[in-house]
Amino acid sequence: MSDVVIASGKGGTGKTTLSTNLATLLAEEDPVVLVDLDVEEPNSGLFINGTEIAREIKYKMIPRWESDACTLCGLCQQVCNFHSIIKLGKEIMVFPQLCHSCFACSELCPTNCLPMVPMRMGQTTHFKLGNLVFVESRLDIGQEQAVPLIAQTKECVKKKYSSIGFKIYDAPPGTSCPVIEAAKDADFIILVTEPTPFGLNDLRLAVETMRELSKPIGIVINRHGIGNDEVDAYCAVENIPVLARLPNDRRAAQLYSRGERIYTQLPEFKKELEKVALHIRSLSEGGRQ
Protein backbone atom coordinates (compact mmCIF):
# COMPACT_ATOMS: atom_id res chain seq x y z
CA MET A 1 0.00 0.00 0.00
CA SER A 2 1.27 3.46 -0.73
CA ASP A 3 -0.47 6.79 -0.63
CA VAL A 4 1.60 9.18 -2.73
CA VAL A 5 0.79 12.88 -2.68
CA ILE A 6 2.02 15.02 -5.57
CA ALA A 7 2.43 18.60 -4.46
CA SER A 8 4.35 21.77 -5.28
CA GLY A 9 4.77 25.18 -3.72
CA LYS A 10 4.37 27.02 -6.99
CA GLY A 11 1.39 26.44 -9.23
CA GLY A 12 1.82 25.47 -12.86
CA THR A 13 5.00 23.44 -12.37
CA GLY A 14 3.49 20.16 -13.59
CA LYS A 15 1.61 18.50 -10.71
CA THR A 16 -1.25 17.50 -12.94
CA THR A 17 1.08 16.44 -15.76
CA LEU A 18 2.96 14.15 -13.40
CA SER A 19 -0.14 12.83 -11.58
CA THR A 20 -2.06 11.87 -14.70
CA ASN A 21 0.89 10.46 -16.64
CA LEU A 22 2.22 8.55 -13.64
CA ALA A 23 -1.17 7.12 -12.68
CA THR A 24 -1.84 5.87 -16.22
CA LEU A 25 1.65 4.40 -16.52
CA LEU A 26 1.26 2.51 -13.20
CA ALA A 27 -2.22 1.40 -14.27
CA GLU A 28 -0.76 -0.40 -17.28
CA GLU A 29 0.17 -3.14 -14.78
CA ASP A 30 -1.71 -2.59 -11.51
CA PRO A 31 -4.96 -1.15 -10.22
CA VAL A 32 -4.48 2.53 -9.31
CA VAL A 33 -6.66 5.27 -7.82
CA LEU A 34 -5.91 8.83 -8.89
CA VAL A 35 -7.55 11.49 -6.71
CA ASP A 36 -7.71 15.16 -7.67
CA LEU A 37 -7.59 17.12 -4.40
CA ASP A 38 -7.02 20.48 -6.10
CA VAL A 39 -10.70 21.11 -5.50
CA GLU A 40 -10.55 24.82 -6.34
CA GLU A 41 -9.22 24.21 -9.84
CA PRO A 42 -9.44 20.47 -10.56
CA ASN A 43 -7.63 19.74 -13.84
CA SER A 44 -6.69 16.05 -13.83
CA GLY A 45 -10.06 15.12 -15.31
CA LEU A 46 -9.18 17.04 -18.47
CA PHE A 47 -6.48 14.43 -19.11
CA ILE A 48 -8.36 11.27 -18.10
CA ASN A 49 -11.26 10.28 -20.34
CA GLY A 50 -12.89 7.69 -18.12
CA THR A 51 -16.47 6.50 -17.79
CA GLU A 52 -18.42 7.99 -14.91
CA ILE A 53 -19.35 5.34 -12.35
CA ALA A 54 -20.65 7.38 -9.42
CA ARG A 55 -21.35 10.93 -8.32
CA GLU A 56 -22.00 12.34 -4.85
CA ILE A 57 -22.97 15.80 -3.69
CA LYS A 58 -20.81 16.90 -0.73
CA TYR A 59 -22.17 18.92 2.15
CA LYS A 60 -20.80 20.78 5.11
CA MET A 61 -22.85 21.30 8.25
CA ILE A 62 -23.91 24.81 9.23
CA PRO A 63 -26.28 26.13 11.91
CA ARG A 64 -29.77 27.28 10.95
CA TRP A 65 -31.54 29.72 13.26
CA GLU A 66 -35.00 28.75 14.43
CA SER A 67 -36.42 31.86 16.03
CA ASP A 68 -39.38 30.38 17.98
CA ALA A 69 -37.72 29.56 21.28
CA CYS A 70 -34.69 31.87 20.91
CA THR A 71 -34.18 34.19 23.88
CA LEU A 72 -31.55 36.27 22.03
CA CYS A 73 -29.06 35.52 24.80
CA GLY A 74 -26.16 36.01 22.36
CA LEU A 75 -24.17 32.99 23.56
CA CYS A 76 -23.85 31.71 19.97
CA GLN A 77 -22.11 34.89 18.90
CA GLN A 78 -19.80 34.71 21.92
CA VAL A 79 -18.71 31.12 21.31
CA CYS A 80 -18.07 31.48 17.58
CA ASN A 81 -14.37 32.09 16.98
CA PHE A 82 -14.93 32.67 13.28
CA HIS A 83 -17.46 35.53 13.45
CA SER A 84 -19.83 33.45 11.37
CA ILE A 85 -22.84 34.00 13.61
CA ILE A 86 -23.93 37.37 14.94
CA LYS A 87 -26.84 38.84 16.82
CA LEU A 88 -28.24 41.83 15.01
CA GLY A 89 -31.11 43.50 16.80
CA LYS A 90 -33.75 40.81 17.23
CA GLU A 91 -32.22 38.45 14.73
CA ILE A 92 -29.45 35.90 14.61
CA MET A 93 -27.57 35.90 11.31
CA VAL A 94 -25.42 33.03 10.05
CA PHE A 95 -22.60 33.55 7.52
CA PRO A 96 -22.12 30.04 6.08
CA GLN A 97 -18.86 30.86 4.21
CA LEU A 98 -17.11 31.66 7.47
CA CYS A 99 -18.46 28.64 9.39
CA HIS A 100 -15.97 25.86 10.20
CA SER A 101 -18.68 23.38 11.33
CA CYS A 102 -17.40 23.09 14.90
CA PHE A 103 -20.98 22.70 16.26
CA ALA A 104 -20.21 24.89 19.32
CA CYS A 105 -23.04 27.40 18.76
CA SER A 106 -25.51 24.63 18.01
CA GLU A 107 -24.69 22.37 20.94
CA LEU A 108 -24.19 25.13 23.49
CA CYS A 109 -27.43 26.96 22.61
CA PRO A 110 -29.54 26.76 25.79
CA THR A 111 -32.82 26.61 23.84
CA ASN A 112 -31.68 24.39 20.93
CA CYS A 113 -32.48 27.06 18.38
CA LEU A 114 -29.51 26.36 16.11
CA PRO A 115 -29.83 22.88 14.62
CA MET A 116 -27.02 21.94 12.23
CA VAL A 117 -28.17 21.42 8.65
CA PRO A 118 -26.27 20.33 5.54
CA MET A 119 -25.19 22.93 2.98
CA ARG A 120 -23.89 21.92 -0.43
CA MET A 121 -20.20 22.77 -0.96
CA GLY A 122 -19.27 20.72 -4.02
CA GLN A 123 -19.35 17.32 -5.62
CA THR A 124 -17.22 14.23 -6.04
CA THR A 125 -17.29 12.19 -9.23
CA HIS A 126 -15.78 8.74 -9.76
CA PHE A 127 -14.58 7.51 -13.17
CA LYS A 128 -13.12 4.27 -14.45
CA LEU A 129 -10.59 3.79 -17.24
CA GLY A 130 -9.24 0.23 -17.43
CA ASN A 131 -7.21 -0.42 -14.27
CA LEU A 132 -7.50 3.19 -13.23
CA VAL A 133 -10.13 4.68 -10.94
CA PHE A 134 -10.18 8.46 -11.05
CA VAL A 135 -11.88 10.49 -8.32
CA GLU A 136 -12.41 14.21 -8.75
CA SER A 137 -13.76 16.66 -6.18
CA ARG A 138 -14.91 20.06 -7.31
CA LEU A 139 -15.65 22.97 -4.97
CA ASP A 140 -18.71 25.05 -5.92
CA ILE A 141 -17.89 28.58 -7.08
CA GLY A 142 -18.45 30.97 -4.19
CA GLN A 143 -17.40 28.42 -1.55
CA GLU A 144 -14.29 29.70 0.18
CA GLN A 145 -13.09 26.71 2.20
CA ALA A 146 -11.36 23.88 0.39
CA VAL A 147 -10.32 21.96 3.51
CA PRO A 148 -13.67 20.29 4.40
CA LEU A 149 -14.11 18.99 0.84
CA ILE A 150 -10.53 17.68 0.73
CA ALA A 151 -11.03 15.93 4.08
CA GLN A 152 -14.29 14.30 2.97
CA THR A 153 -12.79 13.18 -0.33
CA LYS A 154 -9.85 11.47 1.37
CA GLU A 155 -12.19 9.67 3.75
CA CYS A 156 -14.42 8.53 0.92
CA VAL A 157 -11.44 7.18 -1.08
CA LYS A 158 -10.05 5.37 1.96
CA LYS A 159 -13.36 3.57 2.55
CA LYS A 160 -14.34 2.85 -1.01
CA TYR A 161 -11.00 1.81 -2.49
CA SER A 162 -9.21 0.17 0.44
CA SER A 163 -8.26 -2.82 -1.69
CA ILE A 164 -6.38 -0.81 -4.31
CA GLY A 165 -2.65 -0.63 -3.53
CA PHE A 166 -1.57 2.49 -5.41
CA LYS A 167 -3.19 5.77 -4.56
CA ILE A 168 -1.94 8.96 -6.19
CA TYR A 169 -3.25 12.30 -4.92
CA ASP A 170 -2.95 15.51 -6.95
CA ALA A 171 -2.66 18.18 -4.21
CA PRO A 172 -3.50 21.89 -4.38
CA PRO A 173 -0.57 24.31 -4.79
CA GLY A 174 0.90 26.46 -2.00
CA THR A 175 1.90 25.74 1.58
CA SER A 176 -1.19 26.65 3.60
CA CYS A 177 -4.11 24.72 5.08
CA PRO A 178 -5.47 22.96 1.93
CA VAL A 179 -2.05 21.45 1.19
CA ILE A 180 -1.59 20.32 4.78
CA GLU A 181 -4.98 18.62 4.69
CA ALA A 182 -4.09 16.90 1.41
CA ALA A 183 -0.63 15.77 2.57
CA LYS A 184 -0.91 14.95 6.25
CA ASP A 185 -1.77 11.24 5.84
CA ALA A 186 0.57 10.50 2.92
CA ASP A 187 3.24 7.79 2.94
CA PHE A 188 5.39 9.66 0.46
CA ILE A 189 5.38 13.14 -1.05
CA ILE A 190 6.60 14.05 -4.50
CA LEU A 191 7.31 17.75 -4.94
CA VAL A 192 7.24 18.93 -8.54
CA THR A 193 9.29 21.99 -9.36
CA GLU A 194 10.88 23.76 -12.28
CA PRO A 195 14.55 24.84 -12.42
CA THR A 196 13.91 28.58 -12.13
CA PRO A 197 14.24 31.15 -9.32
CA PHE A 198 10.45 31.05 -8.71
CA GLY A 199 10.52 27.25 -8.74
CA LEU A 200 13.38 27.12 -6.24
CA ASN A 201 11.90 29.71 -3.89
CA ASP A 202 8.58 27.88 -3.73
CA LEU A 203 10.29 24.48 -3.52
CA ARG A 204 12.15 25.57 -0.37
CA LEU A 205 8.82 26.53 1.23
CA ALA A 206 7.24 23.24 0.18
CA VAL A 207 10.19 21.24 1.56
CA GLU A 208 9.98 23.07 4.90
CA THR A 209 6.25 22.35 5.02
CA MET A 210 6.65 18.63 4.34
CA ARG A 211 9.50 18.39 6.87
CA GLU A 212 7.18 19.96 9.41
CA LEU A 213 4.83 17.06 8.67
CA SER A 214 7.80 14.63 8.96
CA LYS A 215 7.08 13.14 5.54
CA PRO A 216 9.63 11.46 3.27
CA ILE A 217 9.99 13.43 0.06
CA GLY A 218 11.34 13.11 -3.45
CA ILE A 219 11.67 15.80 -6.10
CA VAL A 220 10.71 15.76 -9.75
CA ILE A 221 12.19 18.59 -11.82
CA ASN A 222 9.93 19.47 -14.72
CA ARG A 223 11.01 21.44 -17.79
CA HIS A 224 14.59 20.43 -17.02
CA GLY A 225 17.03 22.38 -19.18
CA ILE A 226 15.26 25.72 -18.92
CA GLY A 227 16.42 28.20 -16.27
CA ASN A 228 19.50 27.28 -14.22
CA ASP A 229 21.06 24.50 -12.08
CA GLU A 230 20.20 25.88 -8.66
CA VAL A 231 17.38 23.45 -7.95
CA ASP A 232 19.74 20.51 -8.52
CA ALA A 233 22.33 22.17 -6.27
CA TYR A 234 19.74 22.78 -3.56
CA CYS A 235 18.57 19.13 -3.63
CA ALA A 236 22.18 17.93 -3.33
CA VAL A 237 22.87 20.18 -0.33
CA GLU A 238 19.61 19.24 1.38
CA ASN A 239 20.12 15.59 0.54
CA ILE A 240 16.73 15.17 -1.10
CA PRO A 241 16.56 12.59 -3.89
CA VAL A 242 15.75 13.88 -7.37
CA LEU A 243 13.54 11.10 -8.73
CA ALA A 244 13.40 12.33 -12.31
CA ARG A 245 14.13 15.23 -14.61
CA LEU A 246 11.34 15.68 -17.15
CA PRO A 247 12.77 17.41 -20.23
CA ASN A 248 11.87 20.95 -21.30
CA ASP A 249 10.29 20.34 -24.68
CA ARG A 250 7.87 22.48 -26.64
CA ARG A 251 6.18 19.25 -27.83
CA ALA A 252 5.36 18.35 -24.22
CA ALA A 253 3.76 21.79 -23.75
CA GLN A 254 1.73 21.28 -26.93
CA LEU A 255 0.55 17.78 -25.92
CA TYR A 256 -0.40 19.14 -22.50
CA SER A 257 -2.28 22.03 -24.08
CA ARG A 258 -4.52 19.54 -25.93
CA GLY A 259 -5.13 17.38 -22.85
CA GLU A 260 -3.09 14.49 -24.23
CA ARG A 261 -0.89 11.98 -22.46
CA ILE A 262 2.79 12.86 -22.87
CA TYR A 263 4.70 9.67 -22.10
CA THR A 264 3.04 7.65 -24.83
CA GLN A 265 4.35 10.10 -27.43
CA LEU A 266 7.68 11.35 -26.07
CA PRO A 267 10.16 8.53 -25.31
CA GLU A 268 12.54 10.91 -23.44
CA PHE A 269 9.69 11.83 -21.14
CA LYS A 270 8.67 8.19 -20.65
CA LYS A 271 12.21 7.19 -19.67
CA GLU A 272 12.19 9.71 -16.81
CA LEU A 273 8.62 8.92 -15.77
CA GLU A 274 9.51 5.24 -15.45
CA LYS A 275 12.09 6.17 -12.81
CA VAL A 276 9.30 7.70 -10.70
CA ALA A 277 7.09 4.64 -11.23
CA LEU A 278 9.96 2.39 -10.20
CA HIS A 279 10.50 4.38 -7.02
CA ILE A 280 6.83 4.12 -6.09
CA ARG A 281 6.76 0.39 -6.73
CA SER A 282 9.82 -0.05 -4.51
CA LEU A 283 8.14 1.93 -1.72
CA SER A 284 5.12 -0.26 -1.97
CA GLU A 285 7.18 -3.47 -1.81
CA GLY A 286 9.10 -2.06 1.17
CA GLY A 287 5.76 -1.48 2.89
CA ARG A 288 4.63 -5.08 2.37
CA GLN A 289 7.67 -6.66 3.98
Binding site: T16, E40, E41, N43, L46, F47, I141, G142, Y256, S257, R258, G259
Partner: peptide
Protein backbone atom coordinates in the same frame (compact mmCIF):
# COMPACT_ATOMS: atom_id res chain seq x y z
CA UNK B 1 -4.36 32.64 -19.00
CA UNK B 2 -2.75 30.20 -21.41
CA UNK B 3 -4.33 28.23 -24.28
CA UNK B 4 -4.32 24.80 -22.66
CA UNK B 5 -7.28 22.62 -21.68
CA UNK B 6 -6.60 23.48 -18.04
CA UNK B 7 -5.90 27.17 -18.72
CA UNK B 8 -9.32 27.81 -20.27
CA UNK B 9 -11.05 25.59 -17.69
CA UNK B 10 -9.54 27.53 -14.77
CA UNK B 11 -10.13 30.88 -16.47
CA UNK B 12 -13.86 30.16 -16.72
CA UNK B 13 -14.07 29.06 -13.08
CA UNK B 14 -12.23 32.06 -11.69
CA UNK B 15 -14.22 34.43 -13.92
CA UNK B 16 -17.47 33.04 -12.44
CA UNK B 17 -16.12 34.26 -9.12
CA UNK B 18 -15.14 37.68 -10.59
CA UNK B 19 -18.70 38.01 -11.90
CA UNK B 20 -20.06 37.55 -8.36
Amino acid sequence: TEPTVSGIHDLKRVYELVKN
